[in-house]
Amino acid sequence: MLELRLVQGNLLKKVLEAVKDLVTDANFDCSSTGFSLQAMDSSHVALVALLLRSEGFEHYRCDRNVSMGMNLNNMAKMLKCAGNDDIVTIKADDGSDTVTFMFESPNQDKIADFEMKLMDIDSEHLGIPEAEYHAIVRMPSSEFARICKDLSSIGDTVVISVTKEGVKFSTRGDIGNANVVCRQNTTVDKPEESTTIEMHEPVSLTFALRYMNSFTKATPLSSTVTISLSSELPVVVEYKIAEMGYIRFYLAPKIED
């Protein structure tokens, strides 16, 4: 028996909007730790890792570890039927081939349940080693989204370079080239509007903007984004989900042929 009651039901709606274009089908894993997902895109270039910790749910019952295969587009369709203020409960019986999403309006005057068929998914689970990153950039998520969108109108790839001067996002294309430099700025009144750069050594890596733009669909989940870079590892683009966990996107770089 599985029963997870999430008062902030719209969090789940936002999570689905953030991942459904990157991954078609995925296994959601439910354990005493929380509700999680790890999935790669079809070309095995990008990976999404989601964790919603059990403590973040108002009620969390998971009698045994369960893995539920879901089509994310279908799940998003069902969650779109929930109101933004609705409480969402995910329910599944042991051995069942369906999952039920229950939506309750805040004043309990409307209760809906949507039952979705589960699917068997053979997914490859990757071990992600703990790593020291050469540079960690924390900046407003809306600013990062804006930069990715702007640069993708010029070129297909972005070079992210971190030096003591700041973080530079560069692209080039047929019509010209563009550079955006963000300097460390911690003097603003609101911490969510600041940019901080923790650099152990300079790093410069090239990534496909198509994936970066896809990651920025998670912007509504968090006011800040953390970009961790190392010359030997995929970049990590992390959006913290307040009091619940995170959504992390890993992207392999483009390298000189």
Partner: peptide, 14 residues
């Protein structure tokens, strides 16, 4: 010319 690589050289399947 830059080439897109996959995640597998970096992460191992478990």
């Amino acid at each position: 010319e830059v080439k897109q690589v996959g995640l597998f050289p970096f992460f191992e399947q478990v």
